[in-house]
Structure formats: structure tokens, C-alpha cells
């Protein structure tokens, strides 16, 4: 009898802890083409010639929704996406088996509490160049490149978007409807962003400020589920 019980608990245990890996892949698109870095293929948008050197950002606090209710949250959910580093574009979410969900949510950037927690490791390690050193805080989203429209030396633009305190909190949420599939590909199309940046007046945003918040607010609309 005891043996049966033991076997039953072991089986139950395995069943309960059974996990499904859900692969997530981030894809970057510009002008209907895949964005490949560091190959600086020139992008012609209207009359401007643009090239992208860096596209790097944090996605964090992944969770799944079913009928507007959170059904699953990733623990320690911080992922640094670097368009230049293909390994960073893919990771797995570990879900319980048979989980029902209809939407995925994540934040672009790092939350307030984590920003004040002190020295962090892994993806949050300041060696990744996504931490401001003269003023504590993570850079949530980094876009660097050149545009013939910029009046700066070498036509460079640099957008380091961050800030975790009001009124300059730049953390943004993205929620996307998903169907249950074996993998989810999330696409970021930066074309509308490149079109709406006021390059001539603001080729650089490098600290928490109103312009950073405006920039950040454009981001959620650029993400979609790739078909």
C-alpha cells in the first residue's frame, strides 16, 4: 500500500511540475525588411539616408493573461535584447503544462524597484552598457545610428531612453493577443519610430526628461506578433 502511495506521489509530483517550454523570438524590421546588425545596410526613408548602429533594449516582467486575468508570471524576468547578438533574441518561457492563455504582456525597460536595488548581475549587470553611471538608473531602450537629416557631427543620433521616477518614468507595457502555439515571435518594426523622431532639433536624448518619455510612449505600438 505504502509503495503505491509513494509511486502515486512521485507521479503526481512529475505531473504537477511538468513544464512546457515556450520559445520567444524577437525580430526587428525596418522598411519591410529584416534589420541586420552590424551590417549597416542603408535605409532610405523619404529623402533621408539612415543607418542603424545599435538597437538594444530590456524586456521584463513577462506574464500571460487569460480573459483579462494574469495566469502566469515569469520570475526574475529581465531580458536584454541586442539586435546585434542573435543569441539574445531567443529565450524560453517555462510554463506549466496545459496552461490556457490568450494574451502575453511584458514591459519595455526596468521597473522602479529594480532600479534602486543596487548592484545586479546577469542581464542587469552594468557591463552591458545599459546603465547610467553618473546618475543611477537603467537605460531601457537604446537606438543609435546616423541620418543625413541630423546636423550633428557625422550625422549621428543617439537615443538612450530611461528614467524610472515620475514625472519621467519611461517604463512601458506591451500587451499582445496570442493564440496557443508552440512558439511566439514578437516583431518590433522601427520604421514609424524613425519617421517620427525630430532629428534636426533632438539628435540626442541621453537622460531622463520629457523628450525621453515621449519617445518611450511611441514604443508599445511598434510591437506585434509576427505571422
Amino acid at each position: 500500500m505504502k509503495v503505491y502511495l509513494l509511486i502515486a506521489t512521485i507521479v503526481l509530483h512529475f505531473y504537477a511540475s511538468a513544464q512546457n517550454s515556450l520559445p520567444i523570438t524577437f525580430k526587428h524590421v525596418v522598411n519591410k525588411q529584416d534589420l541586420m546588425l552590424p551590417d549597416t545596410n542603408k535605409i532610405i526613408l523619404h529623402q533621408d539616408t539612415i543607418s542603424i548602429q545599435t538597437l538594444k533594449y530590456y524586456v521584463s516582467n513577462f506574464c500571460l493573461y487569460q480573459k483579462n486575468k494574469v495566469v502566469w508570471q515569469e520570475k526574475n524576468s529581465y531580458h536584454l535584447i541586442d539586435a546585434e547578438d542573435t543569441a539574445s533574441l531567443k529565450f524560453n518561457l517555462q510554463l506549466p503544462k496545459n496552461l490556457q492563455y490568450d494574451a502575453i504582456q511584458f514591459a519595455i525597460g526596468i521597473d522602479n524597484a529594480t532600479n534602486t536595488k543596487g548592484a545586479m548581475a546577469g542581464h542587469l549587470d552594468p557591463i552591458h552598457g545599459m546603465y547610467w553611471t553618473w546618475q543611477s538608473g537603467y537605460i531601457n531602450f537604446k537606438l543609435e545610428g546616423t541620418n543625413t537629416k541630423c546636423t550633428t557631427p557625422k550625422n549621428e543620433f543617439q537615443y538612450h531612453i530611461g528614467g524610472y521616477q515620475n514625472p519621467y518614468n519611461t517604463l512601458q507595457l506591451v500587451q499582445l493577443p496570442v493564440s496557443i502555439k508552440s512558439a511566439i515571435d514578437i516583431q518590433l518594426d522601427i520604421t514609424p519610430l524613425l519617421q517620427s523622431i525630430p532629428y534636426s532639433t533632438q539628435a540626442r536624448v541621453m537622460q531622463p526628461c520629457g523628450a525621453a518619455v515621449q519617445f518611450a510612449q511611441l514604443l508599445p505600438g511598434l510591437f506585434s506578433i509576427a505571422k
Binding site: 534602486t116 553618473w134 543611477s136
Partner: peptide
């Protein structure tokens, strides 16, 4: 400018 003593050293280091 610095919000935690643990990240203090980053400021002079990078300046």
C-alpha cells in the same frame, strides 16, 4: 544622483 551605495563606485570609475 546616486540611489544606492552599491552603485556609487560606477560614477567616479566612468568619469
Amino acid at each position: 544622483a546616486v540611489n544606492n551605495i552599491e552603485v556609487q563606485a560606477l560614477a567616479p570609475l566612468h568619469d
